[in-house]
Design a protein around this nucleic acid. Structure first.
Length: 253
DNA sequence: TCCCAGGGGCCGA
DNA sequence: TCGGCCCATGGG
């Protein structure tokens, strides 16, 4: 399989997939800002389709950070419950997060699962962002600095950098690996940094909004059609997929 | 009842 | 370097 640098075909293929998904689903309005839900320009869950200047304020950037940790291996529905609990306890700003005893914080975010680990992770990253002055005004941390923190892996770091600080990082998650494998773009087990770099190479001349949108589109598409047990009927990527039911190969081995 | 969800740390081979 | 296990709730 040629590298992305060598293969204009793969790059055009990825761009084509992006255009199909964007046309089918429309702008996704990521990252949702929970505290702004229902406000003008925001839907009932805090999404803001077509507006890529969000977040602006440090408190909103911090919400992206909190959400990125709470959603680790967890459905966004459960994250919303945890965010609501934090809001109800007036524990949405970084200072309050640090003031709360870890056990109390853990109980507030219980609905998001792994709550003991996530409470510790929240404290760790919050302390870092405050001490290094990354929130007021928002000033992006280095990727390696984020990765050095306990509880921050590559996907969480890139989510924070892209959706929180508007930095050119491409978020790769389990959905992305699954979709790319089914499209025949990469092996089943590919390295995170390889896939992320391939996307960055492909979209290096595009606006950050495309990087924002692509990952969000992959997530919504993977929830609707490209599930673990795929629903191929009506899938907008059907004719591009190696594993489409009724396609050339339905055995993922 | 079982499966899965917008991961990451740790440990042994 | 990689596979396996652990963390855990809530909805379908």
């Amino acid at each position: 399989m040629p590298s992305f640098e060598e293969s204009k075909y793969l790059q055009e293929f990825l761009k084509n997939i992006y255009n199909i998904l964007l046309e089918y689903y429309g702008p996704q309005g990521w990252w949702p800002i929970y505290s702004l839900k229902g406000k003008p320009g925001f839907d009932a869950l805090g999404y803001h389709p077509g507006n890529y200047s969000v977040p602006e304020e440090g408190v909103e950037v911090f919400q992206v950070v909190v959400g990125a940790i709470l959603t680790q291996n967890t459905s966004w529905r459960n994250v919303q419950s945890a965010l609501a609990a934090l809001e109800g306890a007036r524990a949405t700003d970084p200072v309050r997060i640090l003031e709360l005893p870890t056990e109390e914080l853990a109980q507030l975010i219980r609905a998001s699962g792994y709550y003991n680990q996530k409470a510790r992770k929240l404290k760790t990253v919050t302390r870092f962002l405050l001490e290094k002055g990354h929130l007021s005004p928002p000033r992006p941390p280095g990727r390696e600095d984020l990765l050095s923190l306990w509880g921050i892996g590559p996907e969480t770091a890139d989510s924070i950098l892209l959706y929180g600080f508007g930095q050119p990082q491409f978020v790769v998650d389990a959905y992305t690996f699954r979709l790319l494998f089914r499209l025949g773009v990469c092996p089943k087990r590919e390295k995170y940094d390889k896939v992320s770099l391939d996307f960055k190479t492909t979209f290096k001349d595009m606006e950050i909004s495309c990087w924002n949108e692509y990952h969000a589109l992959i997530v919504v598409h993977s929830k609707k059609f490209c599930r673990k047990n795929p629903l191929c009927n009506g899938c907008p990527l059907f004719k591009h997929c190696l594993f489409a039911i009724g396609g050339i190969n339905t055995d993922e081995g």
